[in-house]
Nucleic acid binder design. Structure first.
Lengths: 337, 337
DNA sequence: TTGAAAGCGCTAACAG
DNA sequence: CTGTTAGCGCTTTCAA
C-alpha cells in the first residue's frame, strides 16, 4: 500500500504558506522571500515532494515531449537496424536532453499508424513532431500540417509546403563523388543509386550524373538499389556483368557500398586498384570496410539536432515562418577511392 | 489564430446531454441509450472533438507511455549505431503499439541522466520503465525500485532484486558454439569475449570455456573485446599473433565476428577452411559477412517484446510478484563454421 | 440510464 | 512579496 504522493498542498501545509508560493519556488520564479524560500525547500525535502507533470501540463498546455516519427519506411526491425535511423535518434536525443524535452518514438508505416500519430498529436500528448520521412509521397507531413501540429522534417517535403525542415545538398554530394573519381583518373564509372522514390536518392544520382556529363561522360551505367547491404551486393553484380570494364562506382550509401565491395572481392577485383568505390553517409559501415571506405559525409547527428532545434524554436514562438537549414556534404577520402 | 480545441463540454452542449454522457460514449462504456449514443457521435463529428489525453491522465493516473531507458552505455551515437539497441527498440515498439502505449526514449549514461530518469518516472510522466542495461554494476534498477516505479529489465540485474526481467541462457549459447566447433573437428579453438563487466559476456564466455573443458580442452586462449567491429578485428589479431595454430574462434557478438573475419582475411586465413568462426546474436552483420556467419541466435525482438509485456502486465495488476522469462539460444549454421 | 457535482494537482491572474 | 480564486478537461461517484 503506497501512500499517495505528496502534492503542492501538502508541502504548503507543512511550510505554512499557500500553494501559490510553493509553486513559485518550485518553478524558480523570482519574487519570493529568501527566508520563505528556505522554509519551503525544507518542506519539500521533508515531504519528498515531486511535482506532478501531468497536472502541470494540463494548465501550461505543454508536455515537454515531442514525437519522433519514423515515417513511410518498412517494418520496425528493418528501420531500427539501419544505421541511419540510429544516428538520427542519437542526434535528436542528444539535443533534446539539453532542453529537458523527451522524444516519444512512433512508427508511421501504415495508414492506421499515420492516423494514430495525428491523433496522438491532436490529443496534446506531445508538443510537436519530428518527422523523418523517406518516401517523397508520404502523406504525413500534410496531415500534420492540416491538424496544425508544430512539426519539423528531416529532408524537404515531397511537395512544397510551409514547414520547417533540415536537409543537405545531396546534389552537391553526388557531384563531389564524380569530381573525385574523374580527378583520380577513372574513366569507366558506374553508379548504384538509392531508391528513386526518395528525394535524396534522386538528388545524389542527378548530382553525380550531371557532373559526370560535365566531365565528358554522358553515359553512366546505373542500377537502383534499396539502401540495404544485400541490394548493394546484388546491384554491383549486375553492373559488373554488363560492364566488366568498370573501374569505379559511386554507391548511394555506405551499407550498399559495403555490399558492393564484397561482390567486387568475390569477382576478384581489388579495391581501389581495379575498381574505386565511393560511398555516401560516412556511417559505421564505412569503417567496417577494408580498405576503409571513401565516402561523402552526411552529418546526420548534427542535422537531426538542428531539426529538433527548429521544432523547439517554433514551439517557443508560434506563428513564425517556417525555416530550413541546409547542410553541405564533405568528401572523406580514405582507402577505397 | 487557432481557436481552442473543442472539449467535452462543447460536444455535450451540441448534443444536448451532459459531459458525463459524452465521456461514457467516448470511452465505450456500456449503458448508454443507443439513440443518445448516435446523437453524441454526431456531435463529436460535428465539433471535430478529440479527447485531451493530459486531462484524462490527470484523473486516471495513467499516461499511456512508458520510458525506454538505455542505461549504462556510452554516448548516444555509439549506442544507437549498435544493431542490438535498434533491435530492442524495434521489438518494444512493435509490441507496445498493439496496446496503444508509446515509448519515451531516454539515455541513462551519466549520474545526472540517471536521476533525471528517476525524476521523470516519479513525476508520473510515464507509467513505468523498460530498462536495457548492460553493465552489471548499473545502479538504475535499484534506484527505480526504491522509487517504486514499475519496471522490467532486459537481462537480469547485477544483484538479485525483486524485479521482472527477460533474459536468455547465454551460458547455453556459449556451450552450443563449443559443441559445434568440436563436433566439426576443430582442435585449436580460441575466443573473443565481450566486455566482462557485462553479465551476458561472462555467461557466454564461461559457457564456452566450460564446454570446451568438458570436451577435453582445458585451455582456451581468449581476448576480451568491446562488442565493436574494431575491437573484434583487433582481438583477432592478438589471438593470431600468439596462437597462429588456431583453427577456430568463438566471437561473442556478430559485429566483432565481422571484424575478426576481416582480420583473418588479411592474414590470408580462409574461412571456414583454415579457421572456423562462430558469432553470437544473429544480427544484421551476420548476413553482411562472406561466408555468411554461423552464429548463436538471440531472439532480441521477441525478448524485447516480452519485456514490454511483463511491464504492461505489472501495470495491469500492481503488487504482483516479479516474473522472469528466459529464452533459449539457437545455433544457426551457415558458412563460416 | 442519465445528470450534477466533486475533484485530479497544478498554474496564473488578480488582489492585497 | 504573498495569498485567494479560478479554472485546465476529464472521469467518476452518487443521486435521481
Amino acid at each position: 500500500m503506497t501512500k499517495a504522493a505528496p502534492t503542492l498542498e501538502d508541502v504548503a501545509r507543512v511550510a505554512g504558506v499557500s500553494r501559490a508560493t510553493v509553486s513559485r519556488v518550485v518553478n524558480g520564479t523570482r519574487n519570493v522571500d529568501p527566508e520563505l524560500q528556505a522554509t519551503v525547500r525544507n518542506a519539500i525535502e521533508e515531504t519528498g515532494y515531486t511535482p506532478n507533470r501531468v497536472a502541470r501540463s494540463l494548465v501550461t498546455r505543454r508536455t515537454g515531449t515531442v514525437a519522433l516519427v519514423i515515417s513511410g519506411a518498412g517494418s520496425g526491425s528493418d528501420v531500427f537496424t539501419d544505421p541511419f535511423f540510429g544516428r538520427v535518434t542519437a542526434g535528436v536525443v542528444d539535443f533534446l536532453r539539453l532542453h529537458a524535452v523527451h522524444p516519444v518514438l512512433m512508427l508511421a508505416d501504415t495508414d492506421a499508424a499515420r492516423t494514430e500519430v495525428v491523433e496522438f498529436l491532436r490529443q496534446g500528448s506531445a508538443d510537436g513532431a519530428l518527422l523523418v520521412t523517406t518516401h517523397s509521397a508520404d502523406p504525413l507531413p500534410a496531415l500534420l500540417l492540416d491538424a496544425s501540429v508544430p512539426v519539423a522534417l528531416y529532408a524537404r517535403p515531397g511537395r512544397p509546403m510551409p514547414v520547417s525542415y533540415v536537409d543537405m545538398d545531396h546534389h552537391a554530394g553526388g557531384r563531389m563523388a564524380a569530381d573525385h573519381l574523374v580527378a583520380t583518373g577513372r574513366t569507366n564509372v558506374g553508379t548504384v543509386s538509392g531508391p528513386l522514390d526518395v528525394l535524396a536518392s534522386q538528388d545524389r544520382y542527378s548530382g553525380f550524373v550531371d557532373a559526370m556529363a560535365r566531365h565528358g561522360f554522358p553515359y553512366v551505367p546505373a542500377i537502383e538499389g534499396g539502401f540495404t547491404w544485400e541490394s548493394g551486393a546484388r546491384a554491383m553484380q549486375l553492373l559488373l556483368d554488363e560492364h566488366p570494364e568498370l573501374d569505379a562506382v559511386f554507391v548511394a550509401n555506405d551499407l550498399m557500398a559495403q555490399g558492393a565491395m564484397h561482390t567486387l572481392n568475390s569477382y576478384g577485383r581489388s579495391v581501389p586498384v581495379d575498381v574505386a568505390v565511393v560511398g555516401f553517409d560516412d556511417s559505421s559501415p564505412a569503417l567496417a570496410c577494408r580498405p576503409l571506405l571513401t565516402t561523402v559525409r552526411q552529418p546526420v547527428e548534427r542535422m537531426a539536432a538542428a531539426m529538433a532545434g527548429l521544432l523547439l524554436e517554433s514551439l517557443e514562438k508560434p506563428g513564425q515562418r517556417p525555416k530550413s537549414v541546409i547542410f553541405e556534404p564533405e568528401l572523406v577520402v580514405r582507402g577505397s577511392a
